[in-house]
Simulated scan of single mutants.
Amino acid sequence: MTDRLARAQALLSDRGVDALLVTPGADLRYLTGYHALPLERLTCLVLPARGEATLVVPHLERPAAVAAGVALPIATWQETEDPFELVARLVGDVEVVALDDHMWAARVFALGAAIPGADQVLGGEIVAELRMRKEPSEIEALRAAGAAIDRVHRRMGEWLRAGRTEREVGEDIARAILAEGHLTADFVIVGSGPNGASPHHELSDRVIEAGDPVVIDIGGTTPEGYCSDCTRTYVVGGEPDAEFAALYEVLQRAQAAQREHARPGVTAESVDRVGREIIAGAGYGDRFVHRTGHGIGQETHEEPYIVEGSARLLEPGMAFSIEPGIYLDGRYGARIEDIAICTDDGLEVVNTTSRDLVRLP
């Protein structure tokens, strides 16, 4: 964590920012190793561009910070004290303070009042510059998360069948996500038939019918704090209609082309474009309604985003999803999603289950 703090300080200096203030969330966990609860009492990392960092915590939360292995000076405050004044004293006389992007608005205003002479700027992009380039230990954690969610997909035939509701299937999947090595089941999408045309459909009481295409998008967080996210499309109890089969073949070609194209030195938007052109060429351009992918790590969605308009060059260590989809409103949808990591000269895909249309009895 010391190296991460030092690299963050270097970025602060480069950007003319005097201090970074980070409250509970993924940025705090990344920088300090402390998964602090987002309580009404203020916990805040005070990271100056030069000098020693300090973690401000309520007095009653100090044992939790120590138990988490925080290797920083810890400054505590009592119930009747003003924690924002404590932060202001630690920050000192500065001109520019960066705040984490997810800080509660009440805290933004309180810090503005406590440090009135400083301009406030967003600090999320500073930490994102570090988080999007994964360290070897993080890559190993993402591999383990990918293997765990793959094990759930390989068991899909245990639960997914005609005559059951999406909710029944989803509850079984959620239990399996935990059983296969995750600490939490973060999301379960079971989009059967017309519900598959809604990319963020979750669960409903719709009964799955024979011949239904079913989009299964699932993910969780492992005990190491890293996320999984993988989508496969299934057909249950029969054969899909001819158009769906043709549509799915287009989707497979698009996703394969994106996996082949993605590597260090290409832009994020170019990965999106090569798949989108294939889908548009088959007449489904307006049915691919979301970006190709998102970064992943300690959060399911983080930088880099694989989307038109992002000229960011991919670099070794960047981890992201490749997940094109085609959605026909009122009929069905399909999506294929893998998590991939840029290597020095190519791409490592951590999800290894079949990308074919999986047919279940």
Rank of each mutant, 00 (worst) to 15 (best):
M1K: 07
M1V: 07
T2H: 08
T2P: 00
D3H: 02
L5R: 07
A10C: 04
A10N: 13
A10L: 10
S13D: 15
R15P: 01
R15C: 02
G16K: 05
V17Y: 01
L20T: 00
L20W: 09
L21W: 10
L21S: 04
V22I: 08
T23G: 09
T23Y: 05
Y30S: 05
L31N: 01
H35D: 15
L37I: 10
L37W: 13
L39C: 08
C44V: 05
V46H: 03
L47K: 03
P48H: 00
A49F: 10
E52D: 15
L55Y: 05
L55N: 08
P58V: 09
H59F: 14
H59M: 14
R62D: 13
P63M: 07
A64Y: 12
A65C: 04
A65W: 00
G69P: 01
P73C: 05
I74R: 00
W77K: 04
Q78C: 10
E81I: 00
P83V: 00
F84G: 08
A88T: 04
R89N: 15
V91I: 09
A98L: 07
L99Q: 09
D100Q: 03
D101V: 12
W104F: 13
A106N: 04
R107S: 12
L111K: 01
G112A: 09
G112M: 06
P116Y: 00
A118T: 11
E125L: 10
V127R: 05
L130H: 03
R133F: 06
R133N: 13
E135W: 05
S137T: 14
E138F: 03
A145W: 07
I149N: 11
G163L: 07
R167D: 14
E171R: 10
D172S: 13
G181A: 04
G181R: 00
H182A: 11
L183E: 15
A185P: 10
D186R: 12
V188A: 13
I189D: 03
G191I: 03
P199Y: 00
P199R: 02
S204P: 10
R206H: 10
R206F: 12
D212L: 04
P213I: 09
V215F: 02
I216Q: 09
D217I: 00
G219T: 03
G219V: 02
G220C: 07
G220W: 04
C230M: 14
T231C: 06
T233M: 10
Y234G: 12
E243S: 09
V250K: 02
L251N: 01
E260N: 12
E260S: 14
H261M: 08
H261I: 12
A262C: 13
P264Q: 07
A268E: 11
D272T: 02
V274C: 13
E277K: 00
G293E: 10
G297F: 04
T300K: 06
E302S: 11
A311W: 07
R312C: 02
L313Q: 09
L313F: 02
L314N: 12
L314I: 01
E315H: 08
G317Y: 10
A319Q: 10
F320E: 14
I326S: 12
L328G: 01
D329R: 11
R331Y: 03
Y332A: 14
Y332K: 03
Y332F: 12
D345Q: 06
G346H: 01
G346W: 03
L347A: 11
V350N: 06
T353L: 01
T353V: 14
R359H: 13
R359K: 06
